[in-house]
Design a protein around this nucleic acid. Structure first.
Lengths: 207, 207
DNA sequence: GCAAATACGAGACGCAGCGGTTCGTAAAAA
DNA sequence: TTTTTACGAACCGCTGCGTCTCGTATTTGC
């Protein structure tokens, strides 16, 4: 994600400095907030020159993105649990657990905020995080389609609902998660339902 | 929202300057992006002293929040359309239309981003925007409960899904809205469910 | 072993924007 | 008419950005 270099001669990149930068960035964001995160602060805390940060990362948000990947296990289990219902439940459980790790929610909020203001970083954030999560859920859905127990809803909508609810609560409300939330969301997306008014399809703006 | 003053004597607040500031702020954000929005730039464009901005608003985000309320009709229709299904459809239609107004989506993304980084502003953003929208939807849901056609899902979850999907698409994907999105979301939330596995209520962590 | 190449920590630079202050002036109420 | 408040304009010190330049350390190619 950060290695466009393939040096042939000369001193090698210091892995120690790299890790010190990532750790300092993650901890500073967690403890002081993203607003207080500065490149100079990162360098000072990591015992590193500013240029060493600028040499390897385009913005401090990119440092935080990599720090997040390093500090927290972002892997979501895609193990087959027999049914889409169980797979989805585990996916949600993993996601909530990740958000419960100190600093992770803070980092994610900061990254999403930065993505709103820096469109270049937004692309990298999508590729480096958002799209990967979406791909993981898509894998569960494809397996469900094969199995025949996929929800009667477009995959895209399922993903929008899952990630929409999670992100909205993180960004806008900050309500903590409970087991009830998990069950409710799982049940909403794994129930067979019948449309009470099949005639009201597209275009009926009014009653 | 911005009037903590109740002046008794002396020159009155200039309504012309106030509007010039709001217009400049909205247009600068729409055309140049929130990153390029500075208090000095607002003042220059509005033909106003910097202090006139600082006197009435705590941060530039608060100016933008008020500008949004001034420039776009934020009112969501809560007119009774006979069924929750129709009410929800209209709510979504209004929301999509609002997001289609040039500059509005940009402003909302900027405000949400700022709220992630400034917790004081986050409170004001919630009170001044997020909570109002949620209250409007809650009104539709209460009416549906009275009528008996509310969805078989907790009101809070309905709100999380509606706003979650909308915000997630605005913040994370930026996919445009189509009629199909509206129908899909409406149908997801206004269908009768049958849970395929009623025994798996709370607590069944595994299959 | 030596030279070229590259990364390192440290610190300097000019720049932009912040948030606050001080002008002299304009308007509105007592 | 005096007092009070808001106004546009300009200035201040400060912080952080992003770049650049040191002298030094480390690694590969010759």
């Amino acid at each position: 994600m950060t290695e466009p270099h393939a040096p042939r001669r000369g001193r090698k990149r210091s892995e120690q400095s790299r890790l010190a930068i990532l750790t300092a960035t993650f901890e500073l964001t967690r403890d002081e907030g993203y607003r207080a995160l500065t490149v100079e602060g990162i360098a000072a805390r990591a015992g590193v020159g500013k240029q060493t940060v600028y040499r390897w990362w385009p913005t401090k948000a990119d440092v935080l993105l990599e720090a997040l990947a390093t500090k927290a296990e972002l892997h979501v289990s895609v193990a087959d649990r027999g049914s889409f219902r169980a797979d989805l439940e585990q996916f949600l459980r993993d996601s909530f657990a990740l958000l419960g790790v100190p600093g992770v929610a803070q980092a994610l909020r900061s990254l999403m905020a930065e993505a709103q203001v820096d469109s270049q970083f937004a692309s990298r954030f999508r590729e480096g995080f958002l799209d990967r999560r979406r791909a993981a859920l898509a894998e569960l859905l494809q397996r469900a389609r094969r199995r025949g127990d996929a929800p009667p809803v477009a995959d895209e909508l399922v993903a929008d609902v899952v990630f929409g609810v999670i992100w909205y609560r993180v960004l806008a409300t900050n309500r903590p998660w409970g087991e009830a939330d998990l069950v409710a969301l799982r049940d909403l997306l794994t129930s067979t339902f019948t449309n009470p008014d099949p005639s009201s399809r597209i275009g009926s703006t009014h009653v």
